[in-house]
């Protein structure tokens, strides 16, 4: 398992569209993807669970990837969050 902490920088946080950008990207990896936020582990491939977690701008989250292509998955996940998940900054 690999993991990394990042800060959510886009204005709207993980609302519908950014969450969709994230899960669509993660969907192509075989490994499990989790977002750890507020001590809870959230399935990173589930838009429903991500949205329900209300991850807002400025939140510190940890991304965990576990499985055969975990390194590539983590790299893309971190890069996506840092670049604002396709949202206007």
């Amino acid at each position: 398992m690999v993991s990394k902490c990042v800060q959510v920088t886009n204005k709207m946080g993980f609302h519908m569209r950014p969450a969709n950008v994230f899960v669509s990207a993660m969907g192509k990896y075989k490994c499990d993807v989790f977002i750890v936020f507020n001590g809870k582990e959230i399935n990173g491939k589930s838009i429903m669970n991500i949205m329900a977690s209300c991850i807002k701008c400025g939140a510190d989250i940890e991304i965990r990837c576990d499985g055969e292509d975990e390194t590539a998955a983590l790299q893309e996940a971190v890069q996506l969050v840092e670049s604002g998940l396709g949202d206007e900054q």
Binding site: V23, K45, S46, I47, M48
Partner: peptide, 12 residues
């Protein structure tokens, strides 16, 4: 469109 995204949630 949001509904389509949600219904396709593999976890759900």
């Amino acid at each position: 469109n949001g509904q389509i995204m949600m219904i396709q949630d593999p976890f759900m």
